[in-house]
Write a protein that binds this DNA or RNA. Structure first.
Lengths: 137, 137
DNA sequence: TTGCTCCTCACGTCACGTGAGGTGGC
DNA sequence: TTGCTCCTCACGTCACGTGAGGTGGC
């Protein structure tokens, strides 16, 4: 129906830039039809893009996303492929948890530092109140 | 005392590569002494490196880390500087929380996908048990 | 001579951003 | 003619990685 859409539209729909879509094409992740020089993206292209974006969201590189898409394309009936994907996901899950851990540490560091600085500010204000200095430096 | 140390030692101590230290120097974040052509890092350099690494850990770019170090160097007595830093930290804290949120979503996506794939595998095995097919494709 | 650490270019990588200059159809 | 969307180079960015080729002192 409304299927083949131009690059700008697809970009808007997914919140990416046209450059990004062309870049993915360059990397072999997408291969839209051409109408003259203009690109037209089918439903299949959109499905792939969705996968790509999800893959990126969970921290895969474009290279491994490409591999996974290719496995998907092999009419992935084979259980071997599913198991491969599953173990890869498991690995990535570990990575994600580690990242989460680091972010938590960073948040901890940050709040500690902020308390420290806030304390310095308070001290300063206190001493300004106690010992009003001359204006000149 | 054991103060000025060569690049390899400092790198090992902080878990970075020598290239990284040279890169930071290039960017104006570090400026070790030279002994001939060799670099020697003082206690001050180490203190700075510690700040740099903490800054990176909480998600600042090298450019803003540099700014912050420079402010630090201005014998940062001024409350204005502290307040600037504080508001910058507050902003970054928001960024960190958002990142944390995204990671959590990613973990959610990942586990959902894994359950899905695991389910597919189970179905496959079940149907293999029920309807033993001929060996030939 | 071999082995280790250090050095300086300088190109490569990853995932795009950002112009520059040009085209096509309302 | 103006405005919009599309196109193709091609260099820039960020934070380094990775050789290539050479030096200095045990």
């Amino acid at each position: 129906m409304t299927s083949p859409i131009p690059i700008g539209e697809l970009a808007r729909e997914f919140g990416v830039t046209a450059r990004t879509l062309r870049f993915y094409e360059d990397k072999g992740l997408l291969s839209p039809r051409r109408e003259g020089s203009n690109r037209l993206y089918s439903r299949r292209d959109r499905a792939r893009l969705k996968q790509i974006i999800l893959g990126k969201a969970v921290g895969f590189s474009l290279d491994v996303i490409k591999e996974m898409l290719e496995i998907y394309d092999l009419k992935d009936g084979q259980a071997v492929h599913l198991e491969m994907a599953l173990s890869r996901f498991a690995e990535q899950l570990v990575v994600l948890r580690r990242q989460r851990q680091k972010i938590d540490e960073a948040i901890g560091d940050m709040t500690r530092t902020m308390n420290l600085v806030a304390g310095m500010l308070r001290d300063r204000q206190a001493s300004e109140l106690e010992i009003p200095r001359e204006a000149a430096e």
